[in-house]
Design a protein around this nucleic acid. Structure first.
Lengths: 342, 342
DNA sequence: TATAAAATGTAGAACGATGCACGTAGAACA
DNA sequence: TGTTCTACGTGCATCGTTCTACATTTTATA
C-alpha cells in the first residue's frame, strides 16, 4: 500500500500536509494528539497519512523532543533470566508508542557505560538498566540526564532513579531454610567476583543470615568465581575436591548451578545424592529432567513489567523515586532432594 | 571531566567551535575526517572536544546522514546460539564508529516487520536480520530502503541483500552420516513448524538426502513442532511413545534437543542407550555433562563477524550481493554414542 | 615574478519534526 | 449589535548536524 510521494524517498510530514491540504503544524498536532484539532481535520490528516504510508522519523523527533525509544542495557544475553524480564517489558510497552532497543554490556563496566552513552547520544527517552554493577554515583550521573530505572540493583536510598528487585536477601535465606529442612548442614555458596553488585551482596548476606539462624555459622563458606564458565568450572572443581566438600551448593544464578551439576557429574557424583545444588532465577532450564534444578523464582516477567511502567511514569514527569520489591519463592525440584531419602 | 558549557545542557558542535575559535563547519570536518583540515586545526578542535566532553548527537546526524547505528533483529533471545553471533558482531564493530542495537521479534513475523520499520524510523544505517523467516519479497522491500544482511536465511539468488550461512544441508547430512556410522537406522528428525524458514528446509533436505544415500529412505520421518517448549514436549512424547519409536532423533536446534533428552529421561529412557539425540548449533549447553549433546558447529561467531563486515561494506556503498557460506562440522559427544557399545 | 593549482577554512541552507505565538472565525453573553 | 471567549489553524524559529558552494591563503610551476 505504501505509496511514495517522491520516488525512493520517504513520506514526510510536509507531504502529508500537502496531500491533506492543511498546514504542517496541523499534522504535527494530530500526530501528538495535541489540543485544538477538529474531528474533520483529524480525519483528513489520518487519511493522508494512511495513503502515503507516513511514519514519523524518530531522529527528527529526537531533535526537538522524544524519540519514543527506550534503551535496555543487559549484562549478558546468555542468561535466560533476562529473557523473562524482556517479556514483561514487552507486555508493558504493548499499547504504547514506545519501542525497546537492547544493548549488551557483556558484564563489563566500561562497555556498560559506553552503551549508556551511546543510548543517550541516540536520544532515547529513558533507560532500563538490568543487573547493573555500577556505583550509585555513576547511576545518579546517568539519571541526571535521562529517566532511569534499575532492575536488579538494590539501592533503596536512591533518589534520582527507581529500582525494581526481588528480595534477594530473603530469597537466599529461603534457600538455606529449604536445604537445612532437608537435612543439609555443610552448605556452601558459589558467588560471583564483583565488588559492586548489590544483588550479590544481598544474596550473600541472606545466605550468611540463614546459616547463622540455623546455627550453622561455622559452616559458612562463600567462594567467588568470575563470570566465564571456564572459571566456574575451576572453582567448582576446587570446592568439590576439597578434603571437606560441601553437601550442598547454593549458586547465585541457574547457569552457574548447571555448570556445577556438570562438574559434579564429571567427577562421578550424583545430584542429588552426593550433592545438592540450588540455583537462582528459576529459568526455563531448571525444568529439564537432566537438570531438575531447585531454584528461586523472582518472577522476571513481573519485574520487567513493573520496571517499564515506572520508566514511562518517569518519562512523563514523575520525579520522586520508587523502589519496588517482589517476594521470591523457592521452587523445589529434585536437585535438592532431602538427604538420606529412600 | 565532562565540563558543561551551559548548565545542564550538553555540549554541541557549536560550543566546540566557539571554544576552539573556528567555524562549525570546520569542527564537522574534523568529526568526519573530511578533506581539507590542517594538523593544527585538527589539534585545536580535538582538544576542545575533549575539554567540553563533546559527543555528536546521533539523532541530529541522522537528520542529514548516518547515525552510526546498526540494527540487529533477533528472533529469540533464549537460544544461546544468537549470543555467539553477537560476539562476532561485536568483534567486527570494535574499531569502528558503529554501535549495535538489538530488537527481539519473538519469532513472530509481524513483530519482526514492526521491529524493522521501527529501526528504519530510527535511521539505522543498516540492518542485520538473524534467522528471519520473511519471504524474499519482503526482505527485498527492506533492502531497497536500508543496507541489509541476512544471517541464517538461504537465498543464493538474492540480488538486493547479502546472506551469511552455514551449509545447513551438509550439516544435516553429516549428522545422518555420523549416526548411521554408529549403527543407527531408525533416525527421525524433529523440525519446526514454519512454512518459510529456508534453513529448516535445507536441514530437512539434508536429512532426507542423508537417509536416502544410506539406503534408509523408508525410515525417513520428520515431525514438526511449534517453537514453545510445551509443544516440543508434546511432540517428543508422541514420537517416543509410538509403537515404533526412533533409535535416534536429530533436532533442528540444541534447545529442542535438550527438551527431547528431558522427555526421554522422564519416560525412563537412557540417552545414550535407549535413544541417541543430536542437536544443531553447538551451543554452550552441549558441553554440560548432564546433556553431553552431540551437535553441529556452525561457528556463530564467524557468521556474525562476516555478516557485520558485509553490512559495513554495503553501508559504504557496495551493491553487488554476496553470499557467504561456512562449512559446518559435527562435534561428537556422548548423546550419540554408537549403538550397542560396551 | 606572475599565475595556476592545491590546500584550508567559512557561510548558510538543508534535514523532519515540534510547539510557541499569533490570527481568525463562530458562539455566548450582555 | 458589540464585546469577549473559545476553538481551531497557521507561520516560523528551532533542534544539532552535514555538506555544497565559495572565499582566502599557501604552494607549485612556468
Amino acid at each position: 500500500m505504501t505509496e511514495k510521494t517522491k520516488s525512493g524517498s520517504r513520506a514526510t510530514i510536509k507531504h502529508v500536509a500537502e496531500d491533506a491540504g492543511v498546514s504542517v503544524a496541523a499534522v504535527s498536532k494530530v500526530l501528538r494528539d495535541a489540543y485544538g484539532v477538529s474531528e474533520s481535520l483529524r480525519g483528513k490528516v489520518r487519511a493522508s497519512m494512511e495513503k502515503l504510508g507516513y511514519r514519523p522519523l524518530a531522529a527528527a523527533r529526537g531533535m526537538r523532543g522524544q524519540t519514543y525509544t527506550i534503551g535496555i542495557v543487559l549484562p549478558d544475553i546468555r542468561n535466560p533470566f533476562f529473557a523473562d524480564i524482556l517479556t514483561g517489558v514487552n507486555t508493558a510497552l504493548e499499547r504504547t508508542q514506545y519501542r525497546p532497543l537492547i544493548g549488551i554490556s557483556h558484564s563489563s563496566v566500561e562497555t556498560e557505560m559506553a552503551m549508556v552513552e551511546s543510548m543517550i547520544d541516540r536520544q532515547m527517552d529513558g533507560l532500563l538498566m538490568i543487573g547493573s554493577t555500577e556505583t550509585r554515583g555513576n547511576l545518579e550521573l546517568v539519571a541526571g540526564r535521562k529517566p532511569l530505572v534499575a532492575v536488579g540493583h538494590h539501592d533503596p536510598e536512591a533518589t534520582q532513579f527507581d529500582t525494581v528487585n526481588n528480595h534477594d536477601q530473603l530469597g537466599a535465606m529461603l534457600v538455606v531454610k529449604h536445604l537445612t529442612a532437608g537435612g543439609y548442614k555443610k552448605i556452601s555458596m558459589l558467588s560471583l567476583i564483583s565488588g559492586t553488585s548489590t544483588i550479590l551482596a544481598q544474596r550473600e548476606l541472606g545466605y550468611r543470615r540463614g546459616m547463622m539462624e540455623a546455627g550453622l555459622g561455622k559452616n559458612i563458606k562463600i567462594l567467588h568465581s568470575a563470570q566465564t564458565l571456564r572459571e566456574v568450572k575451576i572453582t567448582a572443581n576446587k570446592m568439590l575436591s576439597s578434603p571437606t566438600p560441601p553437601e550442598a551448593i547454593f549458586c547465585w544464578t541457574d547457569l552457574i548451578a548447571l555448570e556445577v551439576i556438570s562438574v559434579a557429574k564429571e567427577m562421578g557424583m550424583q545430584v542429588p545424592g552426593d550433592l545438592a545444588v540450588v540455583g537462582y532465577d528459576n529459568t526455563m532450564f531448571c525444568d529439564f529432567a537432566q537438570n531438575n534444578l531447585t531454584s528461586v523464582d523472582q518472577s522476571g516477567e513481573q519485574l520487567g513489567l513493573q520496571a517499564t511502567r515506572l520508566l514511562i511514569e518517569r518519562i512523563k514527569g514523575r520525579n520522586a523515586a520508587e523502589h519496588f520489591v517482589v517476594t521470591p519463592r523457592v521452587v523445589v525440584r529434585q536437585s535438592s532432594d532431602p538427604r538420606n531419602s529412600p
